[in-house]
């Protein structure tokens, strides 16, 4: 089978290449681009460990072929911190509030929470729980994940207010 040309933006960088059409976006990110933040957990669209942002939408990159992502703008956990290494408010909040134990689900959790807070900057606890219902954590019981997202939401709102 012939390879297809790949062109997309990943974490603000234009990426060009070639790939076998059966390559899944998660494999392209991890094995071709060496962006190993997005994880392969269940590989069956359930766990959300592979969540990335695609054209402003949270998606599970284990269930997107690389060709489907052609021309799109992708954000992974590697693109969350600022260029000088300053962590995103969500990353800081997950760290401060112990929003992880083993850390395997964390890149997907944070990438999903990032988009959730774009869609709904001031979510209720219930809205957070529903909003991350596509991301499974087998360690924490979610309490501190929800707390971290609440803290980050407050932090991001106050930064935004200060800027206005």
């Amino acid at each position: 089978m012939s390879e297809i040309d790949i062109s997309m933006t990943i974490n603000g960088q234009k990426v060009e290449g070639k790939a076998d059409p059966r390559t899944l976006l998660i494999h392209f990110l991890r094995e071709d681009q060496l962006l190993t933040g997005p994880h392969i957990g269940c590989d069956t669209t359930h766990c959300g460990a592979c969540t990335v942002d695609m054209d402003g939408l949270s998606v599970k990159s284990c269930t997107v072929f690389v060709g489907q992502a052609n021309g799109k703008d992708i954000l992974t956990i590697e693109g969350m911190a600022e260029a000088d290494g300053t962590l995103h408010a969500l990353q800081t909040a997950f760290s401060d509030n112990h929003g992880l134990q083993c850390g395997f689900c964390t890149p997907g959790m944070i990438t999903r929470a990032y988009r959730l807070l774009q869609e709904n900057p001031d979510p209720t606890e219930e809205e957070i729980r529903y909003g991350i219902s596509g991301n499974l954590c087998r360690c924490t019981g979610y309490q501190n994940i929800v707390k971290a997202i609440q803290v980050a939401a407050k932090e991001l709102s106050s930064v935004k207010e200060a800027a206005e």
């Binding site: 669209t45 959300g48 969540t51 939408l57 949270s58 998606v59 599970k60 269930t63 997107v64 999903r112 959730l116 909003g131 219902s133 596509g134 991301n135």
Partner: peptide
């Protein structure tokens, strides 16, 4: 149906 990521696609 499913979850937010799946409903996006």
């Amino acid at each position: 149906i499913a979850d937010p990521q799946i409903r996006n696609l």
